[in-house]
Design a protein around this nucleic acid. Structure first.
Lengths: 356, 356
DNA sequence: GTGTTTTATGCAATCGATTGCGGGATGGCT
DNA sequence: AGCCATCCCGCAATCGATTGCATAAAACAC
């Protein structure tokens, strides 16, 4: 009836798993084992060696939860993205994960599925897990950013990228959306297009409002009046794009070009144009956004804006690590980084003169 | 000089964050607060209400690490995949995450980047984090599965999917690769093809050896001799596929069809064929694998094998949850689930007779 | 041999939440 | 009034690792 030295029900599967067990086996204290494993200078080389061997032999693995609790340090960075299946996002994620790995940090990835409610819930989950930093690309519909306050209040670094909040103070990294849209639209204008349709996401999202601005300014530069009947804002899915095409191609005059805010939409437009027997780029020119690999497998290949997602991910990861490490907050100053973009011109927007 | 009741350096940011603080504010014990939050029956409704309000007001969030430690329950499931950017994988991940969310479990996602060494390291990280279950799709080159032993030893559920180990006892979920390949190849044969090239992944991976078997058996059924010069095994990237095409199209007779083990490869073959002015499906028929959305945006659309990744993810998530919940191991019996596939026939493999 | 560093180790408190056990208060009953 | 059951609640141990402080042991100087 004497209780075992460990109160657990299932002793057999526990005895390998604690620092204490290693210590007992070696006849030293847990302190020594702990210090040996963290390579503390006040432990003799000999003891360190013995400990490492015992740990190896027992297949012992530190309990990260206990360690994190004691050290108040989880070594976890949280990430919330709308969808991981988007090319841009998965490229960013890969970059972030690779970068964090170098610093022995782990990344906890969540999808908000474009739902602000779910996003809010995830913020809380990540806070409960005591992540040391949070990286976010918001949903299209996030307008209330107060759920993120828990992080600022707790002084935990918070970095937004790509879809960044408008009126909310925080660190932000984003592509140069204004320039991307401006260059794209300008390019289409230079190819002779005058009725350039624009399909984009909700203007509540800064990304899209900036692109809209770029689009408008390019038109202005060429003294083309903005025709609002050519402009559409909605979630950029394939289905939505086809619906918009139905409207735009309901009656002539048709648009002579499209500048769309993602490549899915550009591809959908191409599909619709094919059905109408319109040929690209002769009858209709196209420019998408993000330079998704898909734009190169369709014919003709589609002009698009490269955002360098891998670099953006690296930036985000490095920034958050800097913030995490220097545990000081630099006053109330926030970093706002705009990364360059590049317009990749392809067949879909080629001038006709060349083909004649 | 009297120390504050909490020894922390930075009291201001801590005082909101502990159960104890809520308790002090309400003049009750931490036990009561804890029980109130977990809706314990031995706490009066009135107290529960007071606690909940105080928690709400203070913006308090439970420390998941402390809770996990005490309960020996992390509520985290680990996931290791080769790459999240593959369509199939991101669909599975989404399904798993959605399913786990229903059970209040979180998913920790890692990419092995097709590196067995990194995979091993990730297994240990996830073990250190005391995930309650692990879901894995291995790298192409994983041949030694002993790193996964820590999970079996610790009696933590382990489920493999898609790329499952061959000689290693564990729960496995995979598509019916044999049937997928068999049906695909048979379909090509029925369209009149006789020189069907097969590009697949390393045979060390069960997936690909099964598909190879399906390919062979279909050929046998039609009494077509296996021509090993038409068969290639390598990592299924776009670049590799183009290289293989160079070999296959170096001299005539050309293959009259391709059955490739993924869609990236099929698309690359299509690209190469276009360069050679071969038309599909007239001169060359194609069948890919996984039914990646990309196969529908190219022209002609490519025949492929639908694997129902979302359903596979749901299966994996449900299985792991079942295993986690019933903390018993059902002897040494392992579940091996093969999910159905469906051949989706498209333009790229259409018989010529119809077009004549 | 005594005194003083240096080195290596152990003790015990701690991180924050959970939970078995014990006890006080309350109410109902005889 | 007395007894018991019921209902709430608090004490304190616990999860496993870390770390400040104390101390034993060894090394060194004189």
């Amino acid at each position: 009836m004497i209780p075992a030295d460990n109160g657990s029900v299932n002793m057999s599967r526990q005895s390998q798993h604690r620092l204490k067990d290693i210590a007992r086996e070696l006849g030293v204290s847990t302190s020594t084992v702990s210090r040996a494993l963290s390579n503390h200078p006040h432990v003799s080389e000999e003891t360190k060696e013995r400990v490492k061997q015992a740990v190896e032999k027992a297949g012992y693995q530190l309990n990260a939860m206990a360690s994190s609790l004691r050290k108040s340090k989880s070594n976890i960075i949280g990430l919330i993205v709308p969808r991981i299946s988007m090319y841009f996002q998965s490229a960013v994620i890969t970059a972030i994960q690779n970068e964090l790995q170098k610093c022995d940090y782990n990344l906890m990835i969540f999808q908000s599925n474009e739902s602000p409610a779910l996003e809010k819930q995830l913020v809380n989950v990540l806070h409960a897990l005591r992540v040391e930093g949070l990286i976010v690309s918001t949903t299209l519909y996030t307008e209330d950013f107060s759920p993120f306050d828990v992080f600022s209040k707790a002084n935990v670094p918070l970095v937004f990228y790509d879809r960044v909040p408008k009126g909310y103070s925080a660190h932000k990294i984003k592509g140069d959306d204004y320039q991307g849209a401006y260059k794209s639209t300008l390019h289409l204008l230079e190819q002779g297009c005058r009725r350039i349709a624009h399909i984009s996401g909700p203007l509540s999202c800064s990304l899209y409002s900036e692109r809209y601005a770029g689009y408008q300014d390019a038109l202005k530069k060429h003294k083309v009046a903005l025709d609002e009947s050519l402009v559409f804002f909605h979630e950029l899915t394939h289905e939505n794009a086809l619906k918009t095409c139905q409207v735009l191609f309901a009656e002539e005059p048709y648009p002579d070009a499209f500048f769309t805010s993602n490549d899915t939409t550009a591809i959908a437009v191409m599909e619709y144009a094919n059905k109408l027997k319109l040929s690209i780029p002769e009858d209709l020119k196209l420019a998408g956004y993000s330079n998704d690999p898909r734009v190169q497998i369709v014919h003709p290949a589609i002009t698009s804006v490269e955002q360098f997602p891998y670099e953006m991910g690296e930036h985000a990861a490095r920034l958050i690590m800097d913030l995490v490490r220097q545990n000081v907050r630099p006053g109330r100053s926030f970093i706002s980084l705009t990364t360059p973009i590049e317009l990749i011109k392809r067949e879909s927007s080629k001038a006709l003169s060349l083909t004649c």
